[in-house]
């Protein structure tokens, strides 16, 4: 199976662990990931006012490129990219005025033929031909949990992991349409499919503080602390995330959190793709564990590779 994959800016430089573990895992599931030629930043924030529609240009340009390459699905892992791409696509589909305005703006983009270097302009309007899927959705709907279970090489022995959705994956429900925002099952089912025990706790869809970690670090510390503490109190040995910013707030800033909240003993934070890649038999050295500030090595301790699951 071949599918277009949008890594986004952060995965290429700061949080490569999420990118490389995704690639390794997908190789083992026989999924070939294709990056759209010349992709750019998605804009990180979906414009929330009716007048700032220029923020739709960047994500629509990415989606149009996927269509030009013959793709009809774009998979992404970062929750920010996912939200922007999915909401922009929906806006273009649902709102004829936005579709007209954005396409008028993007029509004059220059296209360079990779072979002849010939420069042309004049793109066909993008009208929502590409379906945007989060990797968790792609694994559930296109790959399927039975296939994951077939390919599992390592028994994770019901490792207790707390799924953390964060803000962008589920909300606003009407636009994201991934799962119920108050009682989601997507992440839980994924964890069970890879051999973990999913820990239920009340903070899985709360906000980690997001970008406030640079403008008001104390607020982000408190928000992240509430999540980590709740996960730990409910028996989790790790928190699994999908977003590089959640990872930064809960892993990189965990030292700062501990300095403020002295009762917090610490808890490793991992990407869901690291668990998947590990279960599928990927070598520990390519999981990007060196990027973690809170050591997560113990979670990935070598047990003899066995064909335990059928």
């Amino acid at each position: 199976m071949k599918v277009h994959y949008y890594p986004g800016c952060t995965l290429k430089q700061k949080t490569t662990a999420l990118d490389i573990s995704t690639r390794e895992a997908m190789k083992r599931l026989d999924v070939e990931l294709v990056e759209p030629e010349g992709w750019t930043c998605c804009g990180a924030e979906y414009p929330l006012t009716e007048e700032k529609i220029v923020g739709l240009a960047a994500p629509i340009r990415v989606l149009r490129q996927v269509r030009e390459e013959g793709g009809d699905v774009l998979v992404t892992t970062c929750s920010f990219c996912f939200a922007v791409l999915k909401r922009a696509d929906k806006a273009i589909k649902d709102d004829p005025l936005k579709r007209k305005r954005i396409n008028a703006y993007l029509r004059d983009d220059i296209q360079i033929n990779p072979l002849t270097k010939e420069r042309t302009t004049g793109f066909e309007d993008y009208a929502g031909e590409v379906k945007v899927l989060h990797l968790l959705e792609f694994l559930r709907d296109r790959v399927g949990y039975p296939r994951i279970r077939e390919r599992i090489k390592r028994d994770l022995k019901n490792l207790a992991v707390a799924p953390y959705y964060g803000c962008r994956l589920l909300r606003p429900q009407e636009e994201m349409a991934v799962d119920e925002p108050d009682s989601p099952r997507l992440f839980e089912e994924f964890l069970q499919a890879v051999g973990c025990a999913s820990v239920d706790y009340p903070f899985k869809q709360e906000c980690c503080g997001s970008y406030l970690s640079v403008s008001l670090p104390a607020a982000a510390s408190e928000a992240s602390y509430r999540i980590l503490r709740s996960a730990g109190m409910n028996g989790a040995k790790a928190v699994a995330v999908t977003c590089p910013l959640c990872f930064y707030n809960m892993d990189h800033r965990q030292e700062a959190i501990k300095e403020t909240f002295l009762d917090f003993p610490g808890l490793p934070v991992v990407f869901f793709t690291q668990l998947l890649a590990w279960a599928l038999g990927v070598d520990k050295s390519v999981l990007g564990l060196g990027e973690h500030r809170v050591p997560a090595d113990n979670l990935f301790s070598e047990t003899p590779a066995t064909e335990v699951r059928t």
Binding site: C9, C41, G43, E45, S210, V214, S215, Y248
Partner: peptide, 27 residues
């Protein structure tokens, strides 16, 4: 409300790019 001048170069190096794009777009 929060511009590029308010973030130290060290912190800007450390944080994920998405946080800088987000906060400047918002604030």
């Amino acid at each position: 409300a929060f511009g590029p001048g308010e973030i130290s170069p060290e912190l800007a190096q450390e944080v994920p790019q998405q946080v800088l794009v987000s906060i400047f777009r918002k604030f």
